[in-house]
Computed example of a mutant assay.
Amino acid sequence: MSDLQTTPSQTVGPFFAIGLPWEDGPFVVAQDSPDAFRVVGKVLDGDGAPVPDALVEVWQADPEGRFAHPDDPRGPLARMDFRGFGRSATDESGRFWFHTVKPGALPCDDGEEAPHLNVSVFCRGMLVRLVTRIYFPDEPGNDQDPVLVSLPDPARRGTLIAEAAPYGYRFDIHLQGDDETVFFDL
């Protein structure tokens, strides 16, 4: 018989306030940017309960379909107020938000990707971030977007499409359960 004992399990994080703060927070564009709107949502667990200590991150193209990156082959950004990146911690109700503008479509090998936000979700208990997208409703390119059409179940496609709201758009992220958001294995 051995005297060794099992190592107790530990939850990962939350350490977001230490290592992942972002100076501009949820502002992908400056507060007074023309055509700016908000994307607001909640991060919810498998039971539909809010996740109060998650971090949601977005990265997106500008309205002309260019990224704020020196290697973007489409050239430099036309807007000086565009950051292209934002981070929002969830509050006690699991809410997050971003102040942004609608991105342009992106060229790809299979044609064109519809306007979307690239999203990463970090939260306790996860060793690896979750990656998803936010598409916009009534966008003509959604029917040809190679990512959306690769999902055979239309109901699953719907988990990637935001809802129009008076302030812009609403998009909830369901980590598990019947309404689980589609996440990508990168």
Rank of each mutant, 00 (worst) to 15 (best):
Q176M: 08
V12M: 09
V29G: 06
L44E: 03
S33T: 09
A30Q: 08
A49E: 08
E113M: 07
V43C: 09
D172Y: 01
E180F: 00
P52K: 12
D72A: 13
E180M: 10
F85W: 05
T132Y: 05
M126S: 09
M126Y: 12
A49R: 12
R38E: 12
A162P: 01
R156Y: 00
G84I: 07
L55P: 06
P26L: 05
K102D: 00
H174C: 08
F184R: 11
E64A: 13
P107C: 05
R87S: 07
L44A: 07
R133H: 12
V56Q: 06
F122V: 12
L130K: 11
A162T: 00
Q60T: 15
V56E: 02
R87V: 02
K102V: 02
A49H: 09
G111T: 04
E92V: 04
G158M: 06
V40R: 14
D71M: 10
D110M: 14
S88H: 08
D91C: 15
F96K: 14
F183Y: 05
P14R: 04
V28K: 09
V58N: 01
G75D: 06
D172L: 03
L106D: 06
L186E: 03
A68S: 09
R74K: 15
G125I: 01
W97D: 13
F27D: 01
H116A: 11
R83P: 03
Q176K: 12
H99N: 13
A30H: 07
F96T: 10
A165Y: 02
L117V: 08
R156V: 08
G84N: 09
M80P: 01
W97F: 13
M126N: 07
H69D: 01
A164F: 13
K102Y: 00
R129C: 09
P107F: 05
L106A: 11
R170E: 04
E57H: 15
A114E: 01
P70M: 05
V56I: 12
M80A: 11
Y135R: 15
P146W: 10
Y169C: 05
I161A: 12
P63N: 01
V51L: 11
P166R: 07
H99T: 07
D179Q: 14
D45C: 11
S88E: 01
A89D: 03
P14A: 10
V128R: 15
S88D: 04
F96N: 12
V40C: 11
A114G: 06
D72G: 15
E92T: 05
A78N: 02
A36Q: 05
E23S: 11
G13K: 07
M1D: 14
D81K: 10
E57S: 15
A68Q: 06
D91L: 15
D71H: 10
F85A: 03
V56Y: 07
Q60W: 02
V51S: 12
V29H: 01
V39Y: 10
L175M: 13
D32A: 10
T159N: 08
G46H: 00
E163A: 12
F85D: 00
N118K: 09
Y167S: 13
P70H: 05
